[in-house]
Design a protein around this nucleic acid. Sequence first.
DNA 1: GTCTATAAGTCGATAGAC
DNA 2: GTCTATCGACTTATAGAC
Lengths: 197, 197
Amino acid sequence: MARRGSYAKGVAKREEILRVALEVVDRNGMRGTSVRELADAVDLTQAGLLHHFGSKEELFLAILTARDEDSGDDTAGLDIIDQFLAVIERNAQTPGMVQLFTSMAAAATSDPSHPAHAWFAERYVRFRANLTESLRLRQLTGEVPEDVDVAKLAAVMMAVSDGMQLQWMLDPATDMAAHLRLVWDLALRSAPKADVG
Amino acid sequence: MARRGSYAKGVAKREEILRVALEVVDRNGMRGTSVRELADAVDLTQAGLLHHFGSKEELFLAILTARDEDSGDDTAGLDIIDQFLAVIERNAQTPGMVQLFTSMAAAATSDPSHPAHAWFAERYVRFRANLTESLRLRQLTGEVPEDVDVAKLAAVMMAVSDGMQLQWMLDPATDMAAHLRLVWDLALRSAPKADVG
DNA sequence: GTCTATAAGTCGATAGAC
DNA sequence: GTCTATCGACTTATAGAC
């Protein structure tokens, strides 16, 4: 994979930074995490670090992108609903990532000029479309009742995932996945006209 | 209501600041909103403004507290579920407030030392308890199926409310209240053993 | 290409005069 | 209650060594 020598080194350094940055965020949380602190952790100066990423926010965005790719790899074979649950369960093991995602989502979605705005916008559209498609297929098999608005249900499931992260940060005993499962169970069971049970 | 002259003036100025600060956030969003900018908007210096609130975060917290009190006044007579929907529908009219709430919630919940951490923690506990209590009563009347975990449902409803705000900021055409109503409808309709319609 | 070193500007916070 | 002045921390940008 290595192109010319110095290029490969840059890529390796970039990946080391991403890995270490996540560890630091996991340990110290978002609030106290400055670029200088991250730079110290990878034995670079602040300017040296920003050479690789341009700005603090782009660095954090790179971490989130890498996380999404990892998640995709880890849950590749799973059904999309199970993927969703698996990712949420994994989130409970990486508090720093949850802090980072939540903080970035709030900052980026509320500001169209934020470096990560487009990334979040596309991510929500894509996830919602994938979920909606999967739910629609389940309507064909009869698993999901016909009269459920699957587009809205998809949006709701993502909202529950995001919203429960706040409550989990306030109380880490909160079982985020169990709350998503409640919504899923309610959706499956609701069958006003069919002859279930 | 006026105590000694200067005290009343301070209170009036404080309220003016809160009102103007919300307008500025509504117009400019959170990202570009510095204390200096808010100070200019109320014809004060930055130090003069902070005299009233101590810190930027306490100023923003004061805005959120005032909003909660207003909401309580406006929806006083309503059923708690209807209150919830009414607040969400009002949110769609005040984008700056949604930005402020979302940003503060992310920052405060993820950091125990944040000035607003305790406020959010207590708010979630209180809201969840009120919602749970109301849902439990509805189980007694048969409106909500017996086997629904009402504590989890309460948490889910709050999560949907929070999470849909992110999606609404990305696409203001999103109907936040309609998504909450979907969850509510699913909860009411699900009745695996009962003889409903 | 990558790094060090550093300067400029902005931010929130604080001390002290009035 | 409001001001001026100033502080330290942060982000960004750039000049120049390697």
